[in-house]
């Protein structure tokens, strides 16, 4: 089964470490991720705010291109792009007249054969993930799903919309200890990062506040927009909250990469506003069952013999 890859615009720019870490992990897993040819922007929030047809046509062109390449599924790591592509596929499959109209706009007969896959679905399908863990990610982590991975539930049909668990399960397989917290699916302010930074600072601040107060050592995200708001907007958040938050925010693929013992540079960890260096220091919690313990030094350098690992 051929799995295509739709990076989306931010992964080429402000979220390039998400892309770097994903591709590094894919390489380590021996998975090929060919990009959807000549892809375009999905339109993001702007398109559906301003024009419905545009909001459907931009993703439809991407999906049609993937279909033409015979891709049975398309991995869309950005949660915002994932939402736009999922919604488009859903709406066009529901409404034949709309499908025809949009197909004409993108000059392709879009059929909806390619499934849209989010990053967690792609990662959790790796059967021997535990066996590949060389340096268990033995940290207390706050798994942050944001809005668009799990909502609208009737369309994305992924995990449960309240208190989702898939990312927590995935992090447990890496040896992490996910905390039970209250802001897993609260909005970070999303696309207001530039236009209403004040609101983003407020909403994202509440998220960090809850994660920190429950003892999380890192926030795990799967969305460039969430990362931008929680990491790059940290000065704004701290100014508004009147306190410092040192907690690093890393992409799930970076966490997987660290656990697999990949180099921090290859995972783009140097590109964060909030240094994740604390995560490279000795681990604080005992690794969870399912992952073997390693030396506990720098994950990048750590490695135990493959023979010792148990699935």
């Amino acid at each position: 089964m051929k799995t295509g890859f739709y990076p989306g615009c931010s992964m080429k720019g402000s979220a390039r470490e998400y892309s770097e870490s994903l591709l590094a992990v894919a390489r380590e897993l021996g998975r090929e991720l060919p990009e959807v040819p000549d892809w375009n922007c999905c339109g993001a929030t702007a398109a559906h705010n301003l024009d419905r047809d545009l909001a459907l046509a931009l993703p439809a062109r991407i999906l049609a291109a993937a279909e033409r390449q015979g891709m049975a599924e398309v991995l869309v790591p950005c949660a915002a792009c994932y939402s736009r592509l999922s919604v488009t596929r859903h709406e066009l499959l529901e409404d034949e007249e709309l499908r025809r109209r949009i197909s004409a706009l993108v000059a392709a007969d879009y059929r909806g054969s390619a499934r849209v896959l989010n990053i967690i679905e792609w990662l959790e399908a790796v059967p021997d993930l535990e066996a590949r863990v060389r340096a268990p990610f033995a940290r207390k982590v706050a798994c942050y799903y944001g809005c668009l991975l799990v909502r609208p539930a009737g369309i994305v049909k992924f995990d449960r919309p309240e208190d989702p668990q898939s990312l927590d399960r995935l992090m447990r397989r890496l040896g992490a200890e996910p905390i039970d917290w209250a802001f897993k699916t609260e909005c970070c302010g999303a696309g207001f990062s530039v236009s209403r930074t004040d609101l983003v600072a407020e909403l994202s601040g509440r998220i960090l506040e809850d994660a920190v107060s429950r003892g999380a050592e890192a926030v795990i995200v799967a969305c460039p927009m969430c990362h931008l708001n929680l990491d790059m907007r940290r000065p704004n958040i701290e100014k508004r909250a009147g306190r410092k938050f040192r907690i690093p925010v890393i992409y799930v693929t970076q966490a997987v990469g660290l656990a697999m013992g990949l180099k921090t540079k290859a995972l783009g960890l140097q590109r964060h506003k909030v240094s994740p260096s604390a995560l490279l220091a000795p681990a604080s919690v005992q690794p969870a069952a399912g992952a073997t313990s390693a030396s506990g030094d720098s994950p990048a350098g750590a490695g135990s013999p493959a023979g010792e690992r148990r699935p």
Partner: peptide, 12 residues
Amino acid sequence: VWLCLTCEICFC
């Protein structure tokens, strides 16, 4: 209408 973030929590 412009402040709505489309976070979908209301629909959910």
